[in-house]
């Protein structure tokens, strides 16, 4: 089937089988390997991307379902050489270790902060509940999102996550 999908601002037209999963389209047709596959059943969230403004699990969506949609992946989050505040937060607060869940975690966090500029710790945890991390115990991920939220609100981000690494 012919699909037309805008990914990180660039429009792509491709011929795909109906069964091709969106995550495989991104990774293998477009070569955007930042979006990962960690499970089969829509639990781990490593494949999280933002489709038409809404974060979803791209391993549980067919490419043909995304026909005509706008998709944002981790490769499209930074503004050129300038990191997104969420990316900066993960770097500053050691919000990643092995990095495999990180692209999905970042996409969920970006979407969270776009709809809630000042989330509580509980709201942050609920916002990333669909993204499993095996390395961090989520501690520094929560801090990273707090850092990013403060930065996006124009506050001092270091104060927002002062407990990091303590």
């Amino acid at each position: 089937m012919e699909v037309s999908i805008t990914v990180n601002g660039a429009k792509h037209s491709s011929e795909v089988e109906p069964r091709l999963l969106l995550v495989h389209y991104l990774r293998e047709v477009l070569g955007l390997t930042g979006t990962h596959v960690g499970c089969d059943t829509g639990y781990c969230g490593a494949c999280t991307v933002i489709v038409d403004g809404i974060p979803i699990k791209s391993c549980s969506m067919l490419t043909v379902q995304a026909d005509g949609c706008e998709v944002r992946t981790v490769e499209g989050v930074a503004n050129g050489p300038e990191l997104h505040p969420v990316q900066e937060g993960f770097w500053e607060c050691h919000g990643l270790q092995c990095g495999f869940c990180t692209p999905g975690m970042i996409m969920s966090s970006v979407a969270l902060l776009e709809r809630n500029a000042n989330p509580s710790e509980t709201e942050i945890r609920q916002g990333i509940e669909g993204n499993l991390c095996r390395c961090t115990g989520y501690h520094n991920i929560v801090k990273s999102v707090q850092y990013a939220g403060a930065k996006m609100r124009g506050e001092d981000p270091k104060g927002a996550s002062s407990e990091v690494a303590s």
Binding site: D40, T41, S60
Partner: peptide, 26 residues
């Protein structure tokens, strides 16, 4: 019938469900 696909697509990935036609109502 495919609506959100949160059950159907994983079931198809595991090949527990093998429809010949999928009707996407979205």
């Amino acid at each position: 019938v495919l609506s959100g696909g949160m059950s159907l697509i994983p079931l198809m990935k595991m090949r527990f469900v093998r429809p010949t036609t999928v009707v996407d109502i979205s």
